[in-house]
Every structure is written in structure tokens, then in C-alpha cells.
Nucleic acid binder design. Structure first.
Length: 868
RNA sequence: GCCCGGGUGGUGGAAUGGUAGACACGGCAGACUCAAAAUCUGCUGCUCUUGCGAGCGUGCGAGUUCGAGUCUCGCCCCGGGCACCA
């Protein structure tokens, strides 16, 4: 038989080009890793450990591109550290309690547990398709009784340690559905289902004493040097330390028990500019006055018809109600101020009462103008006599100003100095005292919902709240519940709540509040170190594995989740569940950006998914109708705008490696990334190109015409890329690492005249360097090169320092800061030699145009600047 | 409203105060092909110029510096968080 001519003809080899089949190779390598138990983490004191953790997902039902990005990044770190010889812990679990399961139960009658565990099963399969180097043997869900049993045990330990207490606080109340609403369920002040205006209602709820740790949590931020600066700053601002004065106004003709009105101010230096006092609608004094004042109780009711979120309170129009009551100014017995109830005073902050100085606070000024109150300037800018008009004068506290009405201190001083002087005088005269205050409030953990961790307390009419006995934990959620009625199913369950008091044995009722899901996610990182221990943690395991060396997640968790975790770790230490060394559980933090996509709308305004849209003649059309499509801006992928791409489809079409590679390319990890179909295709094409090169080189026996220069060039690139990628991964610059890997690929493609040895070294290094990002393809290449041991068990390449240094370097030459030429000099050339070489360059001479250089700046290895 | 980020070619982005645009996408041209796809090679910030080259250019406006995308001040626009979404 005559072979087709094509086989003999080199140019025809392209027609028989080898293709990498991801659909075949990816499951194969995942089986190999599974059989090797490659990612199972075991304690081994002989090896350095590395704990890498990505924020665990909420089991919504399907993974989305944000998950792909988050877990691709974590997997790069995990595989990279493993290659470097670390004993890596890289676990996965589920943040499985929360409202969506109850919503699903209401909408389609599924039980929250069924819905949740079904979702987990589906998402686990999807995550497995990504080829992540996870230790699945440690998997758990926070809704597993085994997990929340330990959370209840810790709650009781913390209760005993005085870290938990009950107090009254406000919730959003839907008066029609008779249920508590989350902030996101309040839309324009109305309940999302009923449409009824929400009310603020007082409930007795459970709280963690996080505010007692405010100072400690603030100071410890200084030690979190491997956290993003912006997160540290956001946490500092959230804790909000302030120094101020707390003092009491004397109330004239006060209702009984309210002879003194305690106020807190951070600007006691403006006390002589006070024009009114204001109290929160929830202030006890307001309640006392409302008793015999229908108008005032109406006003208070109006204030309570606002949502509970700070945003809503701040944005609302500032209104007040003159109580008719007056308070005496502490520094002038003849001077009295009116007392208002105002909607912008928070009962939770300070004492729930303030004095207003309109000249130096815009909110107070607006309020004063509205109610015709006096505006008295306390200070003005140095060298200016301008008085406050419609804009309050609010300079930085560090800026020196001229005091017109100083309470104490110099005429010219900064606000900070003025505050210090004012506090000193007030303390000396017994008017009040300087106090440190924090914005941070105690953490309210009570939720009036079913799908959460039950709070293990029993309420007894004679004994009060009593902890559930240890041996009776966990307090399990009852399974026979219905969601056909609004409100908490635990409240109306016929039997679950009725128990005997552990103390007196009398009839008592279970607590029906469950815990905020932030509690569940505040300690899961510690549980991963031994997920089936019969205590919350095992001392040996936490000692070995904690802390998390690298934590990765969305910046949307920058404040609450991370702050609560820092608190809970401290609380676990105080109750004996974590060593002192683990009170800051996350040594390093990385916050990744979101995944965005263009938005598409049909002419009638319908949102269209990218899958419903196709290209025609350079424009986008709706595939089903052929009608043109309006392209909107690229925004975070969301169901409401339908701009979502299903990772499962991408993986089915191109393979997991392509999805991972694309996610890591181009965009810096901390910034948003835009998913484009073109980008995904390009990523797939590149991976094929790498495979073809590997396939070709694997068969290359010797160089066709090897030459030393070609080898040297290729080897220099190879080692420079090894060095660069290593640094880039260490610095979380995956996009830069990818760019370097493209450079190495390009260099290999152009290295046809290099020896087989040099090309093999290069392609092997490329496989090793790509392994953290595209693990399946890297294994396939590694095997194609004839390596017997899987790549997952081989190490990380090392750059040869000798190949990283260049003897000759090119230096740009500027004339008056503009680049005019370039010279080539020895790496260690003397400054004088560089200067004369620069001045001898033809284009530099032309640019100087005969003028005499006034100065020549030589920055060795960087630049030359000739100043004329 | 308050706190925190971000803004660089047609696009995603790169750049210890030192050559702005690495790398990629897209586009253009060429090779291979009957043709197309795939692949390979080259070019590609904008304006002027046949060319050599010149001017302009990192959201806007000032400033510091021999030199600013980078530092300082003042604006504009976009995004995240605001305590019961997770």
C-alpha cells in the first residue's frame, strides 16, 4: 500500500496535528490523583505545613464564574506550595444555613434540608470537574448536626464566660406577614412580599460582646501585615475609635427619673456653639415624654416606620420634634437649649443623645436652619473672618483654626488640641469626663428563622434562661415543619419547643431563635483541621494546622465576616478551643475581584443571556428572532440581568483547564474580570498550541542543526520565566505569570534551531510552571515527555542564577525628560563611561542641538537624563 | 449620606518616581489551500509625514521633581460595604 504523500511531506504534518482532548484527559488525571490520594492532608511534624483556604460557598445549586475564579486562585497556591514541598491543607465545605433555603421552601414546597443537600450534591460534582487539589475527606456543611452541635457547645461555653447576653434591639417588622424581615427584604421601606410599610419593632435578642474587644480588635490590625491595606482600613473605620467627652445636661422640669441627660460628643471644643440637644426616638426620655403627648408618640411612630439600616437612616430627610423640654448649658446657668427627638440620632451609638453645633456640622446646620435655631461660630479659618452661611465650616481636626469662642486653650490651635483642652477643663470643673468610644456595636446573633443553628437555651418561668445540658446537645432542628404560613416554624411547632427546665424540671420552652449564619462561618476554618472531632477542635490538630496561611475570598466580606471570625477566634481561645497563637486566624488575606459580563437587552427591554445572543456581521443579534440586541455595560454577573455564563457549559465545551487559565489571565486577581467568549476561545487555542509544541518536542531526537547561540537564548528565556513566574505566584500576580508563560511558549515556538535537550528543558519547565493553573494539561504533557511519576508528585523548577544576568544592557537616554535615544553599555559600566556614551549617541546629539548640557543624571541600570 | 477601591490604545491589561502600552484579544496584510477553517509569519496608541521623523497621549484641573500612569491638593465618573443577603 502506498502511503498518502502527505505523511512524507513535512508541511503536511499540520494536517495530522495532534489535538489535546480535554474531555478524555481531564477525568483520567483526576482518577490518577484520586487513586494516589494526592491531596489528602495528614499531620506530619517533619514537614512544614501550609493551610490555604478559599471562602466556602453558599450551596445555591450551581457554581458560578465567581466560584471558578476564587477556587482557581486558591488551587494555584495549593498546588504551587505542594510542589515546593509543603504539607498542604486545602479543604472544602458548605456555608449551608440561610434564607434562600426557606424561600425555596415557601416557593416550591421543598424542605430546606432536602433543597440544601441536593444543591450540595450538584455543586460538589461541578467543583470536582474543575480538578481542584482539595482534600474532600474533610468536607462538611454547617447544617450538619455534627457541625452545629459543636457550635452550640461553644455558644454555651461563651455564655458561661460572659461573652453572650440578651438585650432589646430593633428589627424590621412586617405588620401584614407578622414576620421579621432582613434588610434585603425591605424594598423602599416596604415588605417584599406583603408590600406593607415596615416598622421597627423591639425584640429581646441574643448578643455577643464583641464591643468589649473593640480596642483589642483594633490594635491587632497592626499585626495583620499580609492583609490588604484597604481591608485593614475598612476594619479600623468600622470599629471607629473616638475620643470625646461624656457629660450630663441638667433637664429643667424633667419627668421623674430623667433629671440628667447624658450626651457624648467628639467635639467638646464646640460646646459654646451648642444650639440644641437631640435624642434618639428610642431614647428612654422620648418614651417617657410620649406617654402624655400624642403628637410626640406619632412622631416616634413615624421614625419607627423607617428601616433599620444605617444607609436608610442617613439618607432620610433629617427631621426633629421639639419636646418643649429644655436643658441647662453646663457653662452658663442662664443658657438653656431645646431638646428635640430626631430621626438621625442612633440609640446604639454613644448615649443616644447629642448636642448640636450647627456652625461646624452640616447635619446640625441643616437641622438648625429647618427649625430656626441659632448658629454660633466657634472658630473660623486662620486669616479669615468669614462666618458660616449655608455650609458648615468643618476643617480637618489636625488643621489649626482661630477660635472665636474657645472653651479652653489657645486662640490658634487645631481641633485635636481644642478637644484635648476642652476635655481637660470639663474634667477639672467636674462637668464630665473624657472617654474612648467605639462605633462597633455588639453582634446581634438572633434570627427569627428556622434554617439556622438553634440557640441551645431553655426559658423557664422560674429559672429564666437556662443552658441546655451538654449531654442533650445537639438541639436538633425538627424535621416536620411547614412554610405555608409566614413567621418562624419553630415558634408554631406543636411539640419541639416544650421541654422540662434543666434546673427545676418544671415546664419550660426552648429558645426559638437561631443563630446568624455569620456565626457558622466564623469558625469553620478551625473545624477543617479536624472535622469529626467530638469537641469543637482537637488540640493537636489546631496546634499543627492553624493558622490559615492564605485566605482568599471576595472583598464584600472585608468587614463583617472577617471581623466576626477574628472575634470568634478570640472567644474560642478564651473558652479553651484555640491556642493563643490562633486568635488571628488568617495570617494572609487576598480579596479577589468580581466576574463581570456584558449585558444584553432585546428591543422590548427583555434581558437576554449570552447564550441567547449570537454574532452576525459584527453585531449582536437575538438568535431566536434574528432581531438586533442592545449591548449594555459589563457588570457583575447576576441572575437579574441574565449576564451569566454557566461554568459547566464552558467546562463541557473546552475543559476545566481552559476555564481556569482564562480566569487567571489578563486581569489582576484583585480587580474585576470580564468574561468574554472570545477570551475563552483564545485560552483554549493557546492550550492546544502548548500541547502541539510538547507533542513535537517529545518526538524530537536531536537538533536538526543545533547551535550554541540558539540554545543559550532559549535557556535564558526558560530560566528567566521560571524565576519570574515563581515571583509572580508568590505575589498573587497570576495575570503576569500567565503573560510570562506566553513569552516562554513563544520562545519555544521560535526555537527550531535549538537542541532537543534545550527545547525539552524548556517545555518541561513550561509544564511544571503551568501545572498550578492547568493541572490536567500539564500532567498530559509531562507523561508525553516520558516522565513516569505524575507531575503532581514532582517538584517546582529552580532557576539557574547564572542564566538570569545579562552582560550588556540597553539604557534609554532622555533630553529634558523626553526619550531621544538608546545606548548599549556593559552591565557594570562606570557612570562617567555611561555619560560619555550617552553624549556621543547620534540622536542625542541631534536633540541637544549644540546646547551645553547643564546637568547629566545617570541612574545606573535605569536611565540617563541630559538637562539643557 | 458615611467608609473603601478603581479610571492607561478598538478591548483586557503591563510598568521598585526612570523607555508608557509587556502579554493577550480584536483588526490588517502575507504564507499554506481549488476554497474555507485551522495553523504559521509580519504589522497594529492617536495625528501629521511618501519616508526620515515630529507632535500629542495614562478620567479632568493644578502642584512637587532633572523626570509623574506612579507622589500632593481639588474635582468628575464607575464599583464594593453600611451591622438580618451570603
Amino acid at each position: 500500500m502506498i502511503a498518502p504523500a502527505c505523511f512524507a511531506d513535512a508541511s503536511c504534518r499540520r494536517n495530522t496535528m495532534s489535538r489535546y482532548n480535554a474531555a478524555e484527559a481531564e477525568p483520567k488525571w483526576r482518577r490518577v490523583w484520586d487513586e494516589m490520594n494526592a491531596f489528602k492532608a495528614e499531620r506530619d511534624p517533619a514537614k512544614p505545613k501550609y493551610y490555604v483556604l478559599e471562602m466556602f460557598p453558599y450551596p445555591s445549586g450551581r457554581i458560578h464564574m465567581g466560584h471558578v475564579r476564587n477556587y482557581a486562585m486558591g488551587d494555584v497556591i495549593a498546588r504551587y506550595k505542594r510542589a515546593q514541598g509543603f504539607n498542604v491543607l486545602h479543604p472544602m465545605g458548605w456555608d449551608a444555613f440561610g434564607m434562600p433555603a426557606e424561600n425555596a421552601a415557601m416557593e416550591r414546597g421543598s424542605h430546606p434540608a432536602t433543597w440544601t443537600y441536593d444543591n450540595i450534591a450538584a455543586m460538589r460534582e461541578q467543583l470536582k470537574m474543575m480538578g481542584l487539589s482539595l482534600d474532600w475527606s474533610r468536607e462538611f456543611a454547617t447544617c450538619d448536626p455534627e457541625y452545629y452541635a459543636q457550635q452550640q457547645a461553644m455558644f454555651l461555653d461563651m455564655y458561661k464566660a460572659g461573652l453572650v447576653y440578651r438585650k432589646s434591639s430593633t428589627v424590621n417588622w412586617d405588620p401584614v406577614d407578622m414576620t421579621v424581615l432582613a434588610n434585603e427584604q425591605v424594598i423602599d421601606g416596604k415588605g417584599w412580599r406583603s408590600g406593607a410599610p415596615v416598622e421597627r419593632r423591639e425584640l429581646t435578642q441574643w448578643f455577643f460582646r464583641i464591643s468589649d474587644m473593640a480596642g483589642e480588635l483594633l490594635e491587632a490590625i497592626d499585626g495583620l501585615t499580609a492583609w490588604p491595606e484597604k481591608v485593614r482600613l475598612m476594619q479600623r473605620n468600622w470599629i471607629g475609635k473616638s475620643r470625646g467627652l461624656q457629660f450630663a445636661f441638667e433637664v429643667l422640669d424633667a419627668p421623674a427619673g430623667h433629671e440628667k441627660l447624658e450626651v457624648y460628643t467628639t467635639r467638646p471644643d464646640t460646646l459654646l456653639g451648642a444650639s440644641f440637644a437631640a435624642i434618639a426616638a428610642d431614647h428612654p426620655l422620648a418614651g417617657a415624654l410620649a406617654g402624655d403627648n400624642a403628637e410626640l408618640s406619632d412622631f416616634i411612630a413615624r421614625c419607627r416606620r423607617m428601616g433599620t439600616s444605617e444607609e436608610e437612616l442617613e439618607k432620610a430627610e433629617k427631621i426633629g420634634f421639639d419636646t418643649g423640654l429644655r436643658v441647662r448649658h453646663p457653662f452658663d446657668p442662664d443658657w438653656t437649649l431645646p431638646v428635640y427627638v430626631a430621626n438621625f440620632i442612633l440609640m446604639d451609638y454613644g448615649t443616644g443623645a447629642i448636642f448640636g453645633c450647627p456652625a461646624h456640622d452640616q447635619r446640625d446646620l441643616d437641622f438648625a436652619r429647618k427649625y430656626g435655631l441659632p448658629v454660633t461660630d466657634v472658630y473660623c479659618a486662620q486669616g479669615s473672618d468669614e462666618r458660616v452661611g449655608d455650609e458648615a465650616y468643618v476643617p480637618l481636626k489636625s488643621e489649626p483654626v482661630r477660635y472665636l469662642l474657645p472653651l479652653a486653650g489657645e486662640e490658634i490651635m487645631s481641633g485635636d488640641q481644642g478637644v484635648d483642652a476642652a476635655i481637660a477643663r470639663c474634667e477639672a470643673e467636674g462637668v464630665g469626663e473624657g472617654v474612648i468610644n467605639y462605633r462597633l456595636r455588639d453582634w446581634g446573633v438572633s434570627r427569627q428563622r428556622y434554617w439556622g443553628c438553634p440557640i441551645p437555651i431553655i426559658h423557664c418561668d422560674s429559672c429564666g434562661p437556662v443552658p441546655v445540658l451538654r449531654e442533650q446537645l445537639p438541639v436538633k432542628l425538627p424535621e416536620d415543619v411547614t412554610f405555608d404560613k409566614p413567621g418562624n416554624p419553630l415558634d408554631r411547632h406543636p411539640t419541639w419547643g416544650h421541654v422540662a427546665c434543666p434546673d427545676c424540671g418544671g415546664a419550660a420552652r426552648r429558645e426559638t431563635d437561631t443563630m446568624d449564619t455569620f456565626a457558622d462561618s466564623s469558625w469553620y476554618y478551625a473545624r477543617f483541621t479536624n472535622p469529626h472531632a467530638e469537641t469543637p477542635t482537637d488540640p493537636d490538630d489546631v496546634a499543627y494546622w492553624m493558622n490559615v496561611d492564605q485566605y482568599i475570598g471576595g472583598v464584600e466580606h472585608a468587614i463583617l465576616h472577617l471581623l466576626y471570625s477574628r472575634f470568634w477566634a478570640r472567644a474560642m481561645h478564651l473558652t479553651g478551643h484555640l491556642p493563643k497563637s490562633a486568635i488571628e486566624p488568617f495570617d494572609a488575606l487576598f480579596t479577589q475581584g468580581m466576574v463581570c459580563h456584558e449585558t444584553y437587552r432585546a428591543s422590548d427591554g427583555r434581558w437576554l443571556t449570552p447564550a441567547e445572543v449570537s454574532d452576525k456581521d459584527g453585531a449582536k443579534i437575538e438568535t431566536a428572532t434574528g432581531a438586533p440586541v442592545n449591548i449594555g455595560p459589563s457588570v457583575k454577573m447576576s441572575k437579574s440581568k441574565k449576564n451569566v455564563v454557566d461554568p459547566e457549559h464552558i467546562i463541557a465545551e473546552y475543559g476545566a483547564d481552559t476555564a481556569r487559565w482564562f480566569m487567571l489571565s489578563d486581569s489582576p486577581p484583585e480587580r474585576d474580570v470580564e468574561w468574554t467568549a472570545a477570551g475563552a476561545e483564545a485560552a483554549a487555542r493557546h492550550l492546544q498550541r502548548v500541547w502541539r509544541l510538547a507533542d513535537e518536542i517529545a518526538d524530537q531526537r536531536s537538533a536538526t542543526e543545533s547551535n550554541a547561540t540558539a540554545d543559550d537564548t532559549l535557556r535564558r528565556v526558560t530560566h528567566k520565566v521560571i524565576d519570574g513566574v515563581t515571583q509572580d505566584i508568590d505575589g498573587f500576580a497570576f495575570n503576569k505569570a500567565v503573560a510570562r508563560l506566553y513569552e516562554l511558549t513563544n520562545a519555544i515556538a521560535k526555537s527550531g534551531d535549538a537542541s532537543a535537550t534545550a527545547r525539552r528543558e524548556a517545555i518541561a519547565a513550561l509544564a511544571q510552571l503551568m501545572a498550578p493553573m492547568t493541572p490536567h494539561l500539564a500532567e498530559e504533557i509531562w507523561a508525553r515527555l516520558g516522565e513516569a511519576t505524575p507531575l503532581v508528585a514532582s517538584g517546582w523548577p529552580k532557576a539557574d542564577p547564572a542564566l538570569l544576568v545579562e552582560d550588556l544592557i540597553r539604557l534609554p537616554v532622555q533630553v529634558n525628560g523626553k526619550k531621544r535615544g538608546e545606548i548599549e553599555v556593559a552591565k557594570d559600566a562606570a557612570k562617567d563611561d555611561i555619560e560619555s556614551a550617552a553624549l556621543a549617541d547620534a540622536s542625542v546629539i541631534r536633540a541637544i542641538g549644540g546646547a551645553t548640557p547643564r546637568k547629566v543624571i545617570v541612574v545606573p541600570g535605569r536611565i540617563v537624563n541630559v538637562v539643557i
